Simulated scan of single mutants.
Amino acid sequence: MARDLIEQLALKNQNLSRLKGIMHIRLISAQGNLSGRAALAAIYPDRIRVEWLTFLGQPLMRFAADGKNVVIDLHDEDQMYRVKQSPTALQKLIQIPIGIEDLLQILKGAPPLPEYAAAQMRPAEAQKTKVALIGRWHVLKGELKTSADCTIEEMTAFQNDGAIAYRVRWKDWRPQQGYELPREIEITAGTGDILSLLIDRVYPEVPVLPELFQLDVAPSH
């Protein structure tokens, strides 16, 4: 039963190939708090572009991933960086150890599952379900919680030492063109940093130009 549930959750909105959207973003971290509005465009499984502005319309940052590299443009630093797409490529940007592919899974309402060897049902609150993902050497790699109708509510990813890497909470949903998409998401790092996303508008399966995911950066950066 545990593996069947995991497969069902992982296949959430599996046919979604691209989307655009407008969202509110709030980042609470030890380095300070940021909030504003952002425009989002994505092609699954690994391309995304985000333009993040203050509520007054001033640029905060932007980043784009083309399937191989992530280019980050931090407006305050007047500098652009290129990093390889990796499972922790966004940590420098949002203080949370996730990659582009994981973020895109979260945005479509599917848990970004860690590698695991076994799945076990665990005791949960009434009408809810909890599944533990166990890795090699019986290390806890992740934990999933669902509502009574088996909708994903929360996923926690763990480091090898048992500490929390990050936790995702899907707090609200909306039906949109045959998809059930998240409306409100909260991602909390083990350090306590919090990224909150309130998705105002989302447009599934609209045209997205591939060149949108290219940002120029000088080779020396």
Rank of each mutant, 00 (worst) to 15 (best):
F213C: 07
L212P: 03
I28R: 15
F63T: 04
R174G: 01
V50G: 01
S147Q: 11
M61F: 08
I96K: 07
L5W: 07
I100F: 09
V131P: 06
A124V: 08
D216C: 01
L144R: 05
D4G: 13
V208T: 01
R201T: 15
H221Q: 15
L212W: 11
L93R: 05
V168R: 01
D66M: 07
V206G: 01
S220R: 15
G178I: 00
Q8G: 04
L197Y: 04
E101K: 13
T156N: 02
I152Q: 02
T188F: 01
I164T: 14
I185V: 12
S147K: 05
G162H: 05
L212S: 15
D200C: 02
Q177R: 11
P45R: 11
P210L: 10
N15E: 13
H75F: 09
V83K: 15
G135Y: 06
L103I: 09
L11H: 14
S17F: 00
L60C: 04
L93C: 10
G162T: 03
A119S: 13
I48D: 02
Q14T: 14
L197A: 05
T156Y: 10
E125N: 10
Y81K: 14
K92D: 15
K128S: 13
R47G: 03
A30M: 10
R37D: 10
F213M: 10
I25V: 12
A218C: 03
G135L: 06
L144G: 03
Q58E: 08
L107A: 03
A39I: 05
G192T: 10
I22G: 08
Q127L: 13
R3K: 09
I25Y: 08
W137Q: 15
L195K: 04
R169Y: 14
S196L: 08
V83M: 08
L40T: 03
G67D: 07
I194A: 06
I22Q: 05
Q159F: 08
D76A: 12
E125A: 11
D102I: 00
N69C: 03
G142Q: 05
P210G: 06
R122A: 15
I106K: 03
V217L: 05
D102L: 01
M80H: 12
L140I: 06
Q105F: 05
R174M: 05
V131A: 03
T156P: 02
E51N: 13
D172Q: 13
L133K: 09
K130M: 11
E205G: 00
I152S: 06
I164N: 04
L215Q: 12
A110Q: 01
C150W: 06
Q14V: 15
P112A: 12
K128P: 03
E186K: 07
E115H: 12
R3L: 08
R37F: 13
I6R: 05
H24I: 01
N13H: 01
L9Y: 03
